[in-house]
Amino acid sequence: MKKIKEFLIEKIIFISGSLSIVFVVLIFIFLIKEGILFFKYVQFKDFIVGKNWYPISSPAQFGMLPLILGSLLVTLGAMIISIPLGVACALYIAEVVNPKLKDLLKTGVELLAAIPSVVIGFIGMVTLVPLVKNIFHLPTGLTALSGSIMLAFMAMPTIVSIAEDAITVVPRRYKEAALALGATHWQALYRVILVAAAPGIFAAIMLGIGRVIGETMAVMMITGNAAVIPHSFLQPVRTLTATIAAEMGESIRGSNHYYALFAVGIILFIITFIINFIADVFLHRIKK
């Protein structure tokens, strides 16, 4: 009896564990299956570097370059804001702040992750967008810059909490050694502790990028969604994710447009997969 119970429990845990992998594989297969059909009509190269995304004009044009650049620009902007802020915040929480305030701050940062992205998008729409419009005297505040700023907030919890962990696990003896040599607290932080925590901080940044590049709702609400090749942060852009979300509902099932959106999904999947993979490699390196 006991043996049967052990056997069953073992198997149940095994199945639960493998299920998530099975799902990832299934999703990927489904994406490929639907997306691959698209490349019967359009060359892969034209798809990637084509400059025009006019999926419903005739003849339809499926050039994804504006979308890729849109995603990259918004992500780049978000990273320029959130990396220095996030790493500084992590350093502050891990090394500077007194223990009482530390818990409060950590909880606060983690709460930021609990805000639904539609709420972030909504807040950005009514506060940030008009602000950007007025400051830069633009016809519209729905720009890459607005998207970057709001997404920076969304990347912060990931970057801060993982970077903070990486800094906290740096052995105390390194800091002691630096201080005992007459280093100031700051010198110990940036010459020794940051260096020791670098792989973890890098992983935190990668996961932050992964979060930003895959974000949909907030960017769709505040970046203006114009599928043109962006030349500055003060222009409306459209991201890969927003394209799928906005157009999937109106594309006809089985049409070129429909398959094109799946192909966009494949590209997005590959990008986030690579980013998460890199992050994972570095996280494993710390555990060793």
Partner: peptide, 15 residues
């Protein structure tokens, strides 16, 4: 601390 240096119980070279 620069004038009065310290060697610790467990060798603690920086990484």
């Amino acid at each position: 601390r620069r004038k009065v240096g310290m060697v610790f119980q467990r060798p603690n070279p920086f990484p």
